[in-house]
């Protein structure tokens, strides 16, 4: 056995272990884009809340509908960026066992949290919505990190802490929301891009 053969064997082993357990096509830039969308949405929401022309009930309906549209838009953005990154770096982009696992563990806390938020809104505790969103999103990210880049968990921890601080703070819900979904995403995305993605180019 030659030296080179041994090294090739080791890199093949590492490659296969990573490829079969982790989705590596998630892009740091999609995090920046999602953050920017969230900030824009928060700005519109803030303007809507301050607007006097329409009733509270109607405002609430608009906000919930807006949040659902925003969520769908963000998923689309993440998907498009991932597809682009996969094509560029020759990483598999398939709906396979690994990505199915990743999605299951990401959406499980997210769907439970979403339903809980719905219930909280229906019962009129609007102030808690933002902290529930942050906490459950944080859990979803920590869960996801086992099936993708493991440093995603740090973004998850940050969202969790912010969500918990938010739930003991009265008012400023929109500010916490913008910080968690907007600023944190942008910061994480920039860091991730420069630390991991730029090196490979």
């Amino acid at each position: 056995m030659e030296n080179k053969e041994a090294f090739d064997a080791l890199s093949e082993i590492r490659d296969m272990m990573a490829k079969s357990t982790k989705v590596l096509s998630l892009s740091g830039l999609s995090s920046v884009a999602v953050g920017a969308l969230a900030l824009l949405a928060a700005f519109v929401a803030g303007w809507l809340l301050a607007f006097d022309g329409i009733s509270q009930y109607y405002k609430l309906k608009l906000l919930v509908a807006g949040a659902v549209v925003l969520f769908a838009l963000c998923l689309l953005v993440v998907l498009l960026f991932a597809k682009h990154k996969a094509a560029k770096n020759n990483i598999p982009f398939k709906f396979d066992m690994t990505s199915r696992k990743m999605m299951w563990y990401f959406f499980l806390p997210l769907v439970v949290g979403g339903l809980l938020c719905g219930a909280v809104i229906l019962q009129g505790h609007y102030g808690l919505t933002s902290s529930f969103m942050l906490v459950f999103y944080g859990l979803a990210l920590v869960n996801l990190s086992g099936y993708s880049f493991s440093n995603i968990k740090y973004l998850g921890y940050a969202e969790l802490v912010l969500g918990l601080v938010d739930c003991v703070t009265i008012q400023h819900a929109l500010l916490f929301w913008s910080l968690g979904f907007g600023v944190f995403h942008i910061l994480y995305g920039i860091l991730f891009h420069f630390l991991y993605e730029r090196k490979k180019d």
Partner: peptide, 14 residues
């Protein structure tokens, strides 16, 4: 064989 090495690597972690 590279293939058998690959199969074993995948099955070690799944």
């Amino acid at each position: 064989s590279k293939v058998r090495l690959g199969i074993m690597s995948v099955l070690m972690v799944n």
